[in-house]
Simulated scan of single mutants.
Amino acid sequence: MTVYPRSMAPRRAFTLIELLVTLAIIGILAAILIPTVGKVRERAKIVEATADARSIMTAFKLYYATYGQWPTTNGKIFGSNNPDQSDWGKDAENSDGETVWDFITSMFKGGLGYDPDGRARNPQKVAFAPFPEDKIVDGNIVDPWGNPYKFKLDVDNDGRIPRFLEAHLDDPEKDQVWVGDTVIVWSRGPDGADWRKEEAEDDPKTW
């Protein structure tokens, strides 16, 4: 009988059954880990969106503390050429939520923040929230899913903001959500929808 030194002993190859078992184990582990990794990434996006929303909320509050007013006119968030202002943009409080327009984004970064009427809304050039460029698309601050953040302001100073536009609700008395704050900011979340209460359950928000 030939005796080989341990270092020279012939190595036994994997049998087909052993190879199949190994592949099966790898497949099972992948099936367990891939969904988990996906959930971790989605959770990270939610955390990021919540932090961004809070930064935007803080920026609005700092703006109000600096100038004693919101960047609105007659409660509307952007300008009009009509003297009676009848065609102004969405109401900054009683709407389905406004996106962060480019003049607001510019303002947050320390720019003058010219609104569509050509008025500088940040004459002191205060940098309220200088978001990085990769979070700004077409002038809007966007969430990790690529949608602009939305906000509402307490323009009537009653200390509360209606989250939903009542006209969008089947039963406004039952489903309306009132938030006790001067600013609310939210992301549409993973589903990209926030129109009704049931669609907004996954929305990262400031309240």
Rank of each mutant, 00 (worst) to 15 (best):
P132H: 05
N81E: 15
F14W: 13
E98N: 15
P5Y: 06
P204S: 11
A167W: 07
K45L: 12
I77R: 01
L62Q: 11
N140W: 08
P204F: 03
G189E: 08
V155W: 11
V155T: 11
I32L: 15
L169I: 10
I34Q: 08
K135Q: 13
L19P: 00
D52A: 09
D202I: 04
D115Y: 06
R11E: 13
S7R: 14
E198V: 08
D154S: 05
F128W: 00
D91C: 12
E98Y: 02
A127V: 03
W195Q: 15
V40M: 15
E42L: 13
D202R: 10
I141W: 00
F108N: 02
Q124C: 06
A92L: 07
R188W: 09
I28D: 02
Q124N: 14
E98W: 07
T66L: 07
L19W: 06
K205H: 11
W101I: 05
Y64R: 13
N147A: 14
K125M: 13
I46L: 11
A65T: 05
D158R: 05
R163K: 11
R54D: 13
W186I: 00
S95C: 09
F14T: 05
D117L: 12
E166S: 12
V126R: 03
D87Y: 10
K109G: 10
N74R: 10
N147E: 13
M8D: 15
L112N: 11
A200L: 07
N122W: 01
K152E: 02
D91T: 03
K76E: 14
A167M: 12
A193E: 15
N157G: 04
T72W: 00
D171V: 02
P35W: 08
